[in-house]
């Protein structure tokens, strides 16, 4: 491990020695008191409630479909007692599973999602099992969108969508931001010049 780091730092120094500017001095981070610069910031905690509501809706839909299905099965197909008990039990377990997930998953996800904005651009960390950290350089942003679903709006939340020209990850959405924060972020990230033409 040390060996690799050493090698890297050697490459680093070599690169810096015969290389031009490290950070373009003319580009300074836009000063906006509402946008924390350089710090890892969690989402708005209301996203937990909002996600739980979505989770409950999904759980409700899934369990009602399941129970209607089980009922229909009992009506139209002659089942043995054990089959009937087994199927009903499985349906109850699945429905309960969805409900438990609806309650327990949002806080777990919330604790694993952070973003930060600095003079270089945006970084997003997310994922519970498979964790990912995505960095979008400021100058590579084609445009940014803000979208609000009905449930998000109810809780004063918004989603910031970052569009790049990449062949993958071409739109990266950051869910669960406070609506005001999302607007400020978008302001802070919108490119100053428009001469970047595709």
């Amino acid at each position: 491990m040390r060996f690799v780091s050493k090698q890297l730092s050697r490459a680093y120094n070599a690169a810096q020695a015969n290389e031009s500017p490290v950070i373009p001095p003319q580009k300074t981070a836009p000063v906006d008191p509402n946008v924390p610069t350089g710090r890892w910031t969690p989402l708005d905690s209301r996203v937990i409630t909002a996600d739980r509501v979505v989770g409950w809706i999904v759980a409700g839909v899934v369990s009602s479909v399941l129970f209607v299905g089980v009922g229909a099965l009992h009506l139209w197909v002659l089942l043995s007692t054990w089959a009937s008990i087994g199927i009903t039990f499985a349906a109850i377990v699945i429905a309960l599973g969805f409900m438990v997930l609806a309650r327990a998953w949002p806080p777990v996800e919330y604790r694993r999602t952070f973003y930060r904005v600095d003079e270089l651009g945006v970084e997003i960390c997310r994922g519970v099992v498979f964790r990912r950290r995505i960095a979008v350089p400021r100058s590579r942003l084609q445009h940014t969108d803000i979208s609000e679903g009905p449930i998000e709006r109810r809780y004063g939340l918004a989603t910031l969508v970052l569009h790049t020209a990449g062949s993958v990850n071409s739109s990266i959405s950051l869910r669960g931001l406070d609506r005001g924060t999302a607007l400020h972020l978008r302001e802070a990230l919108s490119p100053e010049t428009e001469h970047d033409a595709v």
Binding site: I23, E119, L120, G121, S139, R140
Partner: peptide, 22 residues
Amino acid sequence: LTLSVALRILQRLRLEAESHEL
């Protein structure tokens, strides 16, 4: 990649991407 190395590459690439205009 070793995590610490990967993180340094990530930061380096962010920096380079931003300093080399698209």
